[in-house]
Computed example of a mutant assay.
Amino acid sequence: MWEYVNTKFIIPAEGEKWVMDGLRDAWRRHKRYVKENYFDKYKTLEDRLKNCPSWIPEVQFRQLIEYWELPTVKAMCSLNSQNRKKQKWGHRMRPVNFGRVRMALRATKENNEEPSKAEMFIATRTKNGKQVDPETEVVIAELQNRQHLGETVDDSFKALFGNEQPGRVRCYGRSVTRTSLKKDEEIIKIKQKHADEINSFKEEVKELKEEVVELRKLEGLKEEVQELQQLRHLMKLLVKNNHGLNLEDAEGFIGSNQPSPVDSSSARATRGQNFPRSSGSTHGTTLGKETYGDAIGNGGRKLS
Results as ranks from 00 to 15, higher is better:
residue 140 I to T: 06
residue 40 D to S: 11
residue 140 I to N: 06
residue 32 R to A: 12
residue 85 K to I: 02
residue 111 N to L: 12
residue 160 L to S: 08
residue 127 K to G: 03
residue 89 W to E: 09
residue 157 F to A: 06
residue 65 I to C: 15
residue 151 E to Y: 14
residue 18 W to C: 00
residue 113 E to C: 11
residue 77 C to H: 04
residue 149 L to A: 14
residue 69 E to L: 06
residue 46 E to M: 03
residue 21 D to Q: 05
residue 129 G to T: 09
residue 126 T to P: 05
residue 132 V to W: 06
residue 48 R to S: 09
residue 142 E to A: 14
residue 73 V to E: 13
residue 150 G to E: 05
residue 143 L to E: 02
residue 128 N to L: 07
residue 130 K to V: 11
residue 27 W to A: 14
residue 74 K to I: 08
residue 103 M to F: 00
residue 19 V to L: 04
residue 97 N to D: 14
residue 45 L to S: 12
residue 77 C to I: 02
residue 117 K to F: 12
residue 59 V to F: 00
residue 111 N to V: 04
residue 32 R to M: 09
residue 38 Y to T: 04
residue 44 T to V: 11
residue 33 Y to H: 12
residue 65 I to K: 02
residue 146 R to V: 00
residue 47 D to Q: 15
residue 66 E to A: 14
residue 59 V to H: 01
residue 134 P to N: 05
residue 37 N to A: 04
residue 54 S to F: 06
residue 154 D to C: 07
residue 152 T to I: 09
residue 111 N to D: 15
residue 143 L to P: 02
residue 38 Y to C: 11
residue 151 E to N: 13
residue 39 F to A: 02
residue 124 T to S: 15
residue 138 V to R: 15
residue 28 R to C: 02
residue 46 E to P: 03
residue 136 T to A: 03
residue 122 I to D: 06
residue 30 H to A: 11
residue 60 Q to R: 10
residue 120 M to G: 10
residue 148 H to P: 00
residue 35 K to N: 08
residue 100 R to W: 03
residue 99 G to V: 00
residue 122 I to T: 11
residue 17 K to L: 07
residue 73 V to M: 10
residue 74 K to H: 03
residue 135 E to K: 10
residue 108 T to H: 10
residue 93 M to K: 10
residue 98 F to Y: 14
residue 141 A to S: 15
residue 94 R to Y: 07
residue 158 K to I: 07
residue 141 A to G: 13
residue 111 N to P: 04
residue 34 V to W: 03
residue 50 K to Q: 14
residue 118 A to R: 10
